[in-house]
Structures are given as C-alpha cells and as structure tokens.
C-alpha cells in the first residue's frame, strides 16, 4: 500500500486517540453507553455488570459465554426453557436487545 493513502488515516486516528485520551479519559461512545444501560436492566437480580453476589441465592450468570447466555435467553423467550421469572422477562425484550445483553454480560470467548 502506498504511504500517501495511509497517512490521512493515521493522522485522523491519532487525533481521535488524542481526543479520547485528553478530552475524556472517557473511552466510551454513545453506542457503548446505550449497551451498558440496556444490560444494567439485569443488574438488580444478577449483579452490577453481571457480577452477582456469590452464594446470595440468585443463579450466577457470569459463568456463561455470550453465546451460551444468548441461547438461554432465547430459550426462555420461546418457552423451550422453563423457569420462574426469566421466561416472563425474556418475552419483554426484542431479539436484538437480548443479543446486546448477552454480548455485554457474557464471557468473551
């Protein structure tokens, strides 16, 4: 690749990095904020950022990968998986929202 193609991109990304470093110490975008906010709807029962109280009585979710979590959430939503509250709550979220939640709270693998 010719250097002259790359240069503006480098300059721009350097400025963006600078902005994130100096302007904000806030490496977050509006999209990330949205995703964190959506996932926080689960935190009352399953802990802040999905880190539940150990031995608190509520099933822990942070041992699941994002893929496993999404599979489980979709099974609750479809009725394939029985439960107490989760089948009722999962039906209130769109598939897209459940995917976002699973991506936010599940272990990355």
């Amino acid at each position: 690749m010719q250097m002259k193609y790359l240069k503006p991109i480098l300059v721009t990304s350097a400025l963006i990095s600078l902005n994130q470093w100096s302007g904000l110490s806030f490496a977050q975008t509006a999209d990330q904020l949205y995703k964190r906010g959506l996932a926080a709807t689960c935190a009352n029962c399953h802990g802040t950022d999905g880190k539940g109280v150990v031995d608190g009585g509520m099933p822990l979710i942070n041992n699941l990968t994002s893929a496993q979590m999404l599979e489980k959430l979709k099974a609750y939503k479809s009725g394939a998986l029985e439960g107490t509250i989760m089948p009722q709550l999962a039906k209130g979220y769109s598939d897209e929202q459940l995917t976002t939640i699973a991506n936010q709270l599940g272990k990355k693998q």
């Binding site: 935190a43 009352n44 029962c45 802990g47 802040t48 109280v53 608190g56 509520m58 107490t84």
Partner: peptide
Amino acid sequence: PSILEGIYAWGWAHNIWAD
C-alpha cells in the same frame, strides 16, 4: 407460592442492595 422463589427473593435482595 414456592420455597425456590423464597431463595430467589433473598438472592434478589442481596443483588439489588449490592447493585
């Protein structure tokens, strides 16, 4: 009513207090 939900209720309490 169920005992299982009694356990979950305390799980809810501990988690929402922590949250």
